[in-house]
Design a binder for these strands. Structure first.
Length: 429
RNA sequence: GGAGGGGUGGCAGAGUGGUUGAAUGCACUGGUCUUGAAAACCAGCGUGCCGCAAGGUACCGGGGGUUCGAAUCCCUCCCCCUCCGCCA
């Protein structure tokens, strides 16, 4: 969330940010925050001054009691009763106002960075660059689900029987290709990031910390009996790792990477765009996360973007890099790149990575700070994350891009160390 | 799941109703001393909120209660440890 002091002192900047995101209906939130903040501080000041009076009187009572002056003490005790009920009343106002203020603050998204292009729709995203040539075939290229079916790589129907739509079985060479990609991605990330095996379920505090709650509530699965959320992305456990902690400045930057399954409800999705591996309820992903000094976060964003791009380059897949416009930006982000790989069988781009800077927005929610070496108060860190990469669509793109006329397919050289002969010599079906 | 024991500052560890935000030790920072270092000695050393400031206020796992007054008493939840049960 944004800092209430910032909203108080720069209301116009916040209104502009909301407008740029197309959240014009929410612009009145700014005034509501300012009003609730004013009410809160007023009540707080009053409550504190009354508390001060009570504390002082209590001390006097203690002294009088010790001196055996019961009468004088009794008189003061009577006086305390009124003050106490006043404080109780003020306390209710304080909690109530705090609750409302916090609800308002959670509803205000992060502000777009100045380098983020204007615009509200997908069409306004800026293609920063494209890498690799789009392939042309002298035959009709198949979509990945057809290739996967012919080679027995993935079973969607049995997955639907056993779990439901969007929970496929990867079989044999399909499972091994999947595992090879995980290892390749994780090994690449682990050169610079500490490899982590995080919890796959998180609690509500963590889900709120990274911003999945309240604004993406319906997107996560929920285990009601235990209050657990199966992770929709490793971002949640990784970023919450330092929740409510103060780091040393010399600890920064902290870099984590992790491979996890991700579970997403994807309610309301249907049709051709969710066919095959395009959109699943369970998929695997390697995620990279950084906690940085505020002055470094935008440079770090570029480094993380290049890391994800290097993976696609190593896989020899054509892709493009999009800079998301203000309206398409995630709720918590100030700046976000999406990497889209070319799906040769579907003739469209598929998102396989999203790399984002959250500046101090998540850190404020999670209360993650560092102690400046020069002294002074602890400051909020900046958090970033990126997919490096999401698996299923990479599998789809690999199969489609490398398919041959005779129905066989090739795999890029970079995966050779991760595979064995049977997966490398794919016969025509 | 059952029984019992615990959760105090970066760490260790006192404190069972009244100037206790909290003794003491360690760690850390500054200073004195020293050619330098160590040792010794002195001082400082949590976080949030309100306030221009002085200062005030809150926090001893979380929440609630009793009391004029709670780290200390009561209720409840969470977490950790030990034993039993169950299990990969």
């Amino acid at each position: 969330m944004l800092g209430v002091e910032f909203i108080r002192s720069h209301p116009d900047k916040v209104r502009q940010g909301l407008a740029a995101r197309g959240a014009s209906g929410n612009i009145q939130l700014v005034d509501e925050v300012i009003e609730h903040d004013r009410r809160l501080r007023q009540a707080l000041t009053l409550q504190q001054s009354k508390q001060q009076e009570i504390n002082a009187t209590s001390r006097t009572i203690g002294t009088l009691m010790r001196e055996g002056n019961q009468d004088a003490a009794g008189e003061l005790i009577q006086k305390q009763k009124n003050l106490k009920s006043e404080i109780k009343e003020l306390g209710r106002t304080v909690t109530d106002t705090e609750r409302q203020l916090s609800r308002l603050l959670l509803a205000i998204p992060n502000l777009p960075h100045e380098s983020v292009p204007e615009g509200l729709s997908e069409a306004d995203n800026v293609a920063v660059h494209q890498h690799g040539e789009l392939p042309s075939f002298d035959f009709e290229p198949l979509p990945h689900w057809e290739i996967a079916r012919r080679h027995g790589l993935i079973e969607f129907e049995r997955g639907a029987k056993v779990a439901g739509a969007g929970f496929p079985f990867y079989m044999d060479a399909g499972a091994k290709l999947h595992r090879a990609l995980i290892n390749f991605f994780l090994n690449a990330a682990a050169l610079q990031y500490t490899e982590v095996r995080p919890p796959l379920f998180v609690n509500a505090e963590s889900a709120q910390g990274t911003g999945q709650l309240p604004d993406k509530d319906g997107q996560m699965y929920f285990v009601e009996e235990d209050g657990f959320y199966p992770v929709p992305t490793a971002e949640v456990p990784l970023t919450n790792y330092f929740r409510n902690e103060i780091l040393s400045e010399s600890d920064l930057p902290v870099r984590f990477c992790a491979h996890t399954p991700c579970w997403r409800r994807e309610a309301g999705s249907y049709g051709a765009h969710v066919r095959g591996l395009n959109r699943l309820h369970q998929f695997d992903k390697v995620e990279i996360v950084q906690f940085t000094h505020p002055r470094n976060s935008y440079d770090t964003l570029e480094i993380m973007r290049r890391h994800a791009e290097a993976l696609l380059q190593a896989l020899e897949l054509p892709y493009r890099c999009l800079l998301m416009c203000a309206g398409e930006l995630g709720f918590n982000q100030t700046k976000q790149y999406d990497l889209e790989v070319w799906s040769a069988g579907q003739q469209r781009w598929l998102e396989v990575s999203s790399v984002s800077n959250f500046t101090d927005y998540q850190a404020r929610r999670m209360n993650i700070r560092f102690r400046p070496e020069s002294g002074g108060k602890p400051r909020l860190v900046h958090t970033l994350n990126g997919s490096a990469l999401a698996l299923p669509r990479v599998v789809a793109a690999l199969l489609e891009y490398n398919q041959n006329r005779n129905g066989s397919y090739d795999l890029p050289e970079v995966l050779i160390p991760y595979l064995t002969e049977p997966e490398l010599n794919v016969p025509s079906p």
